[in-house]
Write a protein that binds this DNA or RNA. Structure first.
Length: 465
RNA sequence: UCCCCUGUAGCUCAGCUGGUAGAGCAAUUGACUGUUAAUCAAUGGGUCGUAGGUUCGAGUCCUACCGGGGGAGCCA
């Protein structure tokens, strides 16, 4: 079989680059078959785009294989590309050869109808074959490319931070243990597990962030970014948390919080514009089936300023608002979801950056402001998704950093010697943030559950496929 | 982890105040059609999440457990 000479459907339908009457070979999965006496139609999708192409069989009697071709089968169609004689599509294939490559029987779970997302999650091995997940996986790929393009064009270096970490206190929640110790018969010393016997000679975990290492590279290379998997062993059961997700973490040397906010805003707008301009087919699909206003929202956000306000200002707005909150607000408490949602969805109706948070509720590495009460932290909040970016200017003053670590109760400071060393030798002001890639995709596509924007989600009680 | 809702044919669901199950789609068979989530007809298909309990009798009520959804916390 000459699989190599096949023509991808996107080249026919989307880019219009195949001339009429060209002999083409289509390889793909059957979406639906309609067999009659005089004519039969075999509609195929090959994953290159949303649209299917239909093969037209003029004399069905001469193709007994038609009776074996059901929805879900893989087929090879050879024939001439012709102008469609029916309405509804521009092109079709006048079938000359029709081969069933891989049959699918009546048990094929994907029917010619809409399925619930809940059901599709249970068949995550097959859901990529649906229109929605095809579009999601394609736009995910394109947006990942856009991430690299954005940073590479700005002169940032793409760096790889370790997946396995030995520091158990990165300030971002629960960690997954990495171990080769026989857990049914662990080595014991002084009544406790002897981790020096473990693979790395010490306790080790999956990284919850590449930030600390990112800072090291930034002070050497200037501007860097990471884009990789991140693991959080939190028992979070929400539509916007996953145990394994992809995060983009830029880190800029010689940059303060304003520069950080500028970068975050520019970055998000770049992704929104990229989706609108370079992912037209997917975005029109999402606009039709997922969220009718999503394109309009992205376009208006891409052309407007994000609202920036300090935590203190945010608290004042919330306190003077007539909105009834379940949790009362006052200076010093962390903003609840309902507060964040009010700010971004009701008050400003666009992305909002809140910065300068009370130091008590933020991590040790964030730069202390001169007021001694707040730190240079920032959160970017967007409607429907909530917190999409979290970042800060880092504390680059060695003595201040050491003090804050002590205040935060970090006892094993000597294990962070490497982190402190970049402050000890030629320290530079630097800033960075983390963007949850899936949350960005949710915002861009209008999808409302993080489990549907990553092909194989990992969440509490679910790591199948 | 907490609160609320939910679990009935392959899928989406109906099943009122308890009396041993229905529809649409899918599938199978046949007919018909330049069709396009094709159409029409017939047929097959369910130990009602699991385990207990109340009751003469439970899909329907109660308890526990296991899934799923929404919200909260944690955050990206």
């Amino acid at each position: 079989m000459d699989y190599k000479n096949r023509t991808r459907i996107a080249r026919i339908i989307l880019s219009d680059e195949i001339a009429l009457n060209t002999d083409v070979i289509i390889l793909g999965l059957v979406r639906t078959v309609r067999v009659g006496k005089e004519v039969a139609f075999v509609e195929v999708n090959d994953g290159s785009c949303l649209k299917n192409i239909q093969g037209v069989v003029g004399e069905p009697d001469k193709f007994p294989v038609l009776s074996e071709i059901l929805t879900g089968a893989s087929v090879r169609i050879k024939g001439k590309l012709i102008e469609s004689q029916g309405g509804g599509q521009k092109y079709e294939i006048a079938v000359e050869e029709l081969d069933l490559i891989g049959p699918a029987d009546a048990t094929y779970p994907l029917q010619k109808k809409r399925h619930s997302y809940e059901f599709l999650r249970e068949i995550a091995h097959l859901r990529p074959r649906t229109n929605t997940f095809g579009a999601l996986n394609r736009i995910r790929s394109k947006l990942a490319y856009a991430v690299h393009q954005f940073y590479q064009e700005k002169g940032f270096y793409y760096i790889h931070t370790p997946i396995v970490t030995t520091s158990d206190c990165e300030g971002a929640g629960g960690l997954f243990r990495v171990s080769t110790i026989d857990h049914e018969n662990p080595p014991i010393s002084d009544g406790k597990i002897d981790w020096t016997e473990d693979f790395f000679g010490t306790e080790s975990f999956l990284a919850v962030s590449g930030q600390l290492e990112g800072e090291l590279l930034a002070t050497a290379l200037g501007d860097i970014y990471t884009f990789g998997p991140t693991f959080r062993a939190e028992n979070s059961n929400t539509s916007r948390h996953a145990s394994e997700f992809w995060m983009i973490e830029p880190e800029m040397a010689w940059a303060e919080l304003d520069d950080n906010m500028d970068l975050a805003e520019e970055f998000l707008k770049y992704l929104f514009r990229y989706a609108l301009e370079k992912c037209e087919e997917e975005m029109s699909f999402f606009g039709q089936w997922i969220d009718k206003e999503v394109r309009q929202t992205l376009a208006s956000v891409a052309d407007s300023q994000f609202e920036r306000l300090t935590y203190t200002e945010a608290i004042k707005i919330l306190e003077s608002s007539s909105e009834k909150f379940e949790f009362p607000v006052s200076w010093g408490v962390d903003l609840q979801s309902e507060h964040e949602r009010y700010l971004t969805e009701k008050k400003f109706k666009k992305p909002v950056i809140v910065y300068d948070y009370p130091e008590e509720i933020k991590s040790f590495y964030m730069k202390l402001n001169d007021d001694g009460k707040t730190v240079r932290a920032m959160d970017v909040l967007v409607p429907r998704v909530g917190e999409i970016i979290g970042g800060s200017q880092r504390e680059h003053r060695l003595d201040v950093l050491e003090n804050r670590m002590k205040e935060k109760g970090i006892t094993n400071i000597e294990e962070y010697q490497w982190y402190l060393d970049i402050r000890k030798y030629g320290t530079v002001p630097h800033s960075g943030f983390g963007l949850g890639f899936e949350r960005a995709i949710m915002y861009i596509t209008g999808m409302t559950n993080i489990r549907d924007v990553i092909p194989f989600p990992r969440v509490p009680k679910w790591a199948k496929f």
